[in-house]
């Protein structure tokens, strides 16, 4: 449905450091490395936000444009990328490992707390309090038809539309990763704003 305008296909404008060859070599000086990590963290978050990536499979992504500047012939090694994700996790809580082997990372351009707020606000704005939705419906299902249209519309407007639409958050969790969604809903449950029920395959959520 969103194929022609899918965010994954839109070209990403890389920051200037992406064209700086040493950016792809782990800096040995501790202070410089701090700066380097900050820049990588920002790049990874910006990239994933633009491409709407919640789950970053490092082993595959390491061969993608994010970590490999082919025109410069410079690339970040898998070990260095893992270290940066570790820093993002430890320092800012902006990432988490989805697997113990550190092959897949959950990338938090919004962390579960922030997502919980986004979903909570959406529930308020669309008067969904008291309704029961399956998790699938929430991010992909019936409702996502209108969300999808909305998403298309916002995509059509591009950055301009996204900035203008103060309720752009409505569409933000469309296509959200199931694990991140689960974590976010757990936050809502803790806040007493939602109840999750059902079994693994067919979970539902009720908003209060």
């Amino acid at each position: 449905m969103t194929a022609p305008l899918s965010p994954a296909d839109q070209p990403f404008t890389f920051p200037r450091e992406y064209h700086f060859p040493p950016f792809f070599t782990r800096q040995r000086n501790a202070i410089t490395y701090t700066a380097q990590c900050q820049k990588w963290s920002k790049l990874i978050l910006d990239y994933c936000r633009a491409k709407r990536i919640w789950r970053l499979p490092l082993v595959d992504a390491i061969d993608g444009e994010l970590f490999w500047n082919k025109s410069l012939n410079r690339r970040l090694s898998l070990a260095d990328a893992r270290e940066i994700i570790d820093v993002m996790k430890a320092k800012e809580g902006r990432a988490e490992w989805a697997s113990k082997d550190k092959n897949v990372a959950l990338v938090y351009w919004r962390n579960p707390e922030e997502w919980a707020t986004v979903i909570g606000d959406w529930v308020e704005e669309t008067a969904q309090r008291g309704t029961v939705l399956t998790l699938y419906e929430l991010t992909e299902g019936d409702l996502s038809a209108s969300q999808g249209m909305c998403w298309l519309f916002f995509n059509f407007l591009g950055d301009f539309g996204r900035r203008v639409g103060t309720d752009g958050s409505v569409v933000e969790f469309h296509g959200m990763d199931a694990e991140v969604l689960q974590k976010s809903l757990n936050v809502l449950v803790k806040r007493g704003k939602a109840q999750v029920f059902g079994n693994e395959d067919q979970q539902g959520v009720k908003f209060f």
Binding site: Y18, H19, F20, P21, P22, F24, R28, T32
Partner: peptide, 22 residues
């Protein structure tokens, strides 16, 4: 900054981060 992916190790000035291009 050090770049170890060139033929010989290169040492770059961070000023060039902001000159962009590539």
């Amino acid at each position: 900054w050090v770049d170890m992916q060139a033929e010989e190790t290169e040492y770059w000035s961070p000023t060039f981060i902001h000159d962009g291009g590539g």
